[in-house]
Amino acid sequence: MSQRIIVNSNINGENIEFMADERDSLLEALRDRIGLTGVKEGCNNGNCGACAVIMDGRLVNSCCVMAAECQDASITTVEGLEKDGQLTTLQQTFLEDAALQCGICTPGFLVAATALLEFNPHPTEHEIRFWLAGNLCRCTGYDKIIRAVQHAAERA
């Protein structure tokens, strides 16, 4: 059996200690050990972006990170985006622009687009499409998502 390990991380602004299997991915630890089920498992091989989180300031797919690597790391999931119970501008524009249908890809898109707007507050459409190329959506056809990001950037 795989060894149990204890990991200390800052998750969504809170220092926490969690137990995981040594072989757990960060995705598995977030969902099954910590209960942050906003992080979605899509392909589990780094192609779809549904499990995207921000780790130490950069966007990563949590299925391609080992939980054990997160000792002393800082992680932001979709649950950590809101401020004082208020949706962020981006979350609000996703609702207004109907930038989702089934919703499975939405947490990954929100986290990825948040990382984009932090790095580049006024991206061009081309830059938005390029940045989000690692997030797959089979419902919206992407245009509504792109518009929601553009509208969030306009309001910032």
Partner: peptide
């Protein structure tokens, strides 16, 4: 190489 989340790692 890959997309943004791959390039992070």
């Amino acid at each position: 190489i890959g997309g943004t989340a791959i390039q992070g790692r």
